[in-house]
Design a protein around this nucleic acid. Structure first.
Lengths: 216, 216
DNA sequence: GCCGATCCTGACCATTCAGTCATAGTGCCA
DNA sequence: TGGCACTATGACTGAATGGTCAGGATCGGC
């Protein structure tokens, strides 16, 4: 069951989901311009006209896929407050992010590709939701630093650091696999997660919480 | 002078470089399939046929650009030995990598795009040069760990960590700019570099060398 | 001033592209 | 049974695609 939703009950909503799944894979690999509607239709096992029946244009379909991608970007960090323990919150944030790379690599690639293309469809997203989210998270991080809970540092660079090092396992999976000589298995992701937590938390002057500590 | 080489003396070698520069930008933004020869020609201010005079096909031109990109991937870390100081070497490696993101963002994007596309043109690169480089660097890192110079950890994940967090400033520049509200200036890159060095080196159980230490 | 090599380009071609449209099948409620 | 909304699709179109080709310009060496 890789199909996106299957819900919506509607008769051909199943097809809509099937199309979006095929589109997601295609866009993630070849970008918007590099993907043809025909290619998506083939991937979904439907005639091209049927794709354009459900989505009135390629752009329309792409926006639907991008929207679906952004909706996955939630985490425990979203609800964190200044009273929380930064070590606990950041460790779980890193864990969630790597887990997202493992379970939804295609979504991560869609986002990466959109950014590389200059993010032409993310104006509103950056200016509205994302900017607000960012501002509030920066405030929490600063509060943690002010209260001496963690080392003082630039909170923007810290978030970029976490995003990049975790998403890398989705976006650059091909390189990771080729250089390691084998695909990352679940245990490998866990080991990578633990190492990221240890390095980043220690580097932030935090102690790794017991439950995130390596068993080695 | 953004033109690639200008060397080679040849009469139209200047054009060849001009074409490669235009192609680099176009491919970095839209990928191989998403870029048209016409678009590259326009960027270079030449008729399309002239582009295909110098490079017999779009694929040919792309490979030339990719090759040029890979040739930039050198650093001080390449010559490091087990006798060197890991703190010094890794700090300079991180510095060089961020500096590469700052001065050659397009090259980094080309590489990222190629990986996202499934790296169809990097088979030989991964299997030959890159794999050898990787093996030798892994050996050095292990030697450092064995001699107690740095904390024991997985050297693969460490390298992925460094690559991702440094290249992020090129590949995701759009996002970085939008969320910070301003383009990264040289001083910003330096601050980001210093923070990366502090976090990663500390996380590796290393002491940040004097000359890489923040002035704050 | 001639010649061959390099450089340059407009005209052209087969293919693929996103998207339209007219037509037809299907499910459902009255 | 009729009717209507939804679903489906083959045939088509104009534009853009990568690439070819034949002919012409420009150059250095003799």
């Amino acid at each position: 069951m890789t199909l996106s939703k299957m819900a919506d009950a509607g008769v051909g909503a199943k097809n809509k989901a099937r199309i979006m799944d095929a589109a997601e894979k295609a866009f993630a690999q070849n970008g918007f311009k590099g993907t043809s509607v025909q290619q998506i239709a083939d991937g979904a096992g439907l005639p091209k006209t049927n794709v354009l029946y459900y989505f009135k244009s390629k752009q329309d379909l792409y926006l639907a896929v991008l929207q679906q991608t952004l909706s996955l970007w939630n985490s425990r960090f979203d609800q964190a407050t200044a009273e929380d323990d930064p070590a606990e919150i950041l460790a779980s944030y890193i864990t969630e992010k790597v887990e997202m790379s493992r379970t939804h690599p295609v979504a991560s690639k869609i986002f990466a590709m959109e950014i590389l293309n200059g993010a032409p469809n993310l104006n509103r997203y950056f200016d509205d939701e994302h900017a607000k989210w960012m501002a509030s998270r920066i405030a929490i991080l600063k509060a943690w630093m002010d209260s001496g809970k963690m080392r003082r540092m630039d909170p923007y660079y810290l978030l970029f650091h976490i995003w990049s090092s975790t998403q890398h396992y989705a976006d650059f999976a091909v390189q990771v696999t080729r250089l390691r000589g084998a695909k990352m298995k679940k245990a490998d992701y866990q080991a990578a997660t633990q190492q990221l937590i240890e390095v980043i938390l220690t580097g932030c002057g935090l102690t790794v919480p017991e439950k995130y500590r390596s068993s080695i």
